[in-house]
Amino acid sequence: MLTSSLPIKAQIDLILLSLEALAQVGSAEILTLAEAMGFEAYLRDRVGLWRLRQASPLRRGRTGRRKLDVDEARALALICSRLAQQHRQTIRTAIEHWQQQASQGRPPHLDPVLGDYIDRFTGLYQERMADNRSDGPELAQLALDLLVDLLFYSTPQGARRLWITLLERTTPATPSLSLVEPEPAPPPAPELPVLFPHSDV
């Protein structure tokens, strides 16, 4: 799945992309919200927002900033959650359409609401992302996965859920201990834990 093990900056960019595809959330709305929430220091204008989103490694022609510090990531996460809450009815309606399609055994993209969302998301993704491995069905699945995520980010404690999800999905896969060959001599001490393994969030 595309959203697993992605850096936080890429995950946030995808969340904003899905909101854009579903609810036509544009940069003006994001900037207005940032100012209302007191985050204008991180998102001063369209260029600042563009540079932050361009930090995603999935982006085509990455000319934006390479780094996203914790405060910026936090501000963006809080803004994403607030946007989801503001558009929760749209999100819920799309989920209801999906449930209805599923109950009739029909694929989701045949529903007008979901079909439009998936089309817009796929178009935006292919336009902006350098990742050309993703085909239509894979992107449609990604759009639906992000829709489910948005539903729970729109809950009253959605910001907390979003932040936990960002961190958990960034955590690298744990090596299976069962694959480690037993050694007669004690193995070398593991490297010191990296306190901030995702400083390049």
């Binding site: 007191g38 959650s81 607030r82 932040w163 961190l167 955590t171 744990t174 834990p193 995702h198």
Partner: peptide, 30 residues
């Protein structure tokens, strides 16, 4: 569990209030 018993990145902050404020309107500064 976390590998090698290491704490996951920034684990404590998840449970602290710092990252889940999202005050409903009117929003407060960070």
């Amino acid at each position: 569990p976390s590998p090698l018993g290491m704490p996951s990145p920034l684990p404590e902050s998840l449970e602290t209030p710092q990252l889940a404020p999202l005050p409903s309107p009117p929003p407060a500064p960070p």
